[in-house]
Structure formats: C-alpha cells, structure tokens
C-alpha cells in the first residue's frame, strides 16, 4: 500500500513488531504479534498499545491519537512483511471489543480492492467463512497471500 505508515521494528523472526504512533496524545508505542495457533499455519494477529511505565499491554482501548489510517496502514504492512516470510500462512484477526472489530472492518473495507490484489480475504460469520463482501458485518477476518505479491 502506498499510504503513509509508521516505521516497523521487529525481532529476527519477524513475528513480533513495534512502532510508535505520533499524535495529539503524544507518542504511543504499539505492538503487533503473529502467533501460530495450529499446525495448519494459521496465525492470530494481535495488536495493542504498550504502557511504557508498566510495560503492560492493552488491546481493549482505542487510543484515538488522530492517526487511525496511518496505524491501519502500518498494521497491514506488517501483514505483508510477515507473509513475505511465511507465504503459506493464514492470518486471522478479530477485535478484542466490538468497537475495535468495527474499526478493523472499516479499514479492510476501505482498502479491500487493493488488499484483494495480493490476498484472498474471508469474513467470519456465525457458522462459516465467506469471501469478504462490502456491507456485511463479520466477527473476524482471515487472509492468505496469493501466489505473488505485486
């Protein structure tokens, strides 16, 4: 994606990332982690804010630092980076709260045409997966890279 995004830092395995959000609320450190959940190469994408005083981790808040689009673009770029290392991986994401899930839905919907150039995108319903469709509300989101990223 050609949108502005924050610089990502990662350990050598490219499974956990950090970046710094900058906005009216100051500098907020954010972390992303891809966690393997079963042998079918399905990974959970976790994302949240770090309290630098306590090193505690919060994935229930929406920090509202005025840069949600840049944060979203950064998280999506982390998916590209991770899947470049793990081309067969499935990446699953869902919000920890309904409001965060809604933010993910809005973000994916906004860039779905570009995302679909490189990924198969599915939405989770109560009973199954379906190809992601605009205007539908989903419980979670699942992507897998297509053969070659453009």
């Amino acid at each position: 994606m050609r949108l502005p995004k924050y610089q990502l830092k990662s350990g050598e395995r490219l499974s956990s990332y950090e970046f710094i959000s900058e906005g009216p609320k100051g500098l907020i450190k954010k972390r992303i982690q891809f966690t393997l959940i079963n042998k079918e190469e399905i990974y959970n994408l976790g994302f949240g804010d770090v309290d630098e005083q306590t090193n505690e981790f919060y994935d229930l808040v929406v920090s509202n630092n005025g840069d949600s689009e840049k944060v979203l673009a950064t998280v999506i770029s982390a998916v590209y980076a991770f899947c470049d290392m793990h081309p067969n991986a499935w990446v699953f994401a869902t919000g920890s709260t309904a409001s965060r899930n809604r933010l993910y839905q809005i973000g994916i919907s906004k860039y779905i045409h570009e995302i679909k150039e490189d990924f198969d995108v599915y939405g989770q319903t109560e009973i199954d997966w379906e190809e992601f469709q605009l205007g539908r509300n989903y419980l979670g989101f699942l992507v897998q890279r297509k053969n070659k990223i453009s």
Binding site: M1, K5, Q7, L8, K9, S10, G11, E12, R13, L14, S15, S16, Y17, E18, R31, Q33, T35, I37, N44, G46, G48, F57, D59, S77, A78, Y80, A81, D84, T94, S96, D118, I149, S150
Partner: peptide, 25 residues
C-alpha cells in the same frame, strides 16, 4: 514493493518468548 522495510532490532527478540495476546489466541 508493498513489502515494507522492517528494522531488525535484536532487543525485540524477547517479544517472541511470550504470547502477548493469550485470550485472543
């Protein structure tokens, strides 16, 4: 390329030693 530059910081290797989002996993 859509794959971003990622700065490798070995101090972040420790993040892989724990599951940061156990409930979500």
């Amino acid at each position: 390329s859509k794959v971003p530059f990622v700065i490798i910081d070995k101090r972040l290797n420790k993040l892989d030693e724990e599951i940061l989002f156990p409930k979500k996993v």
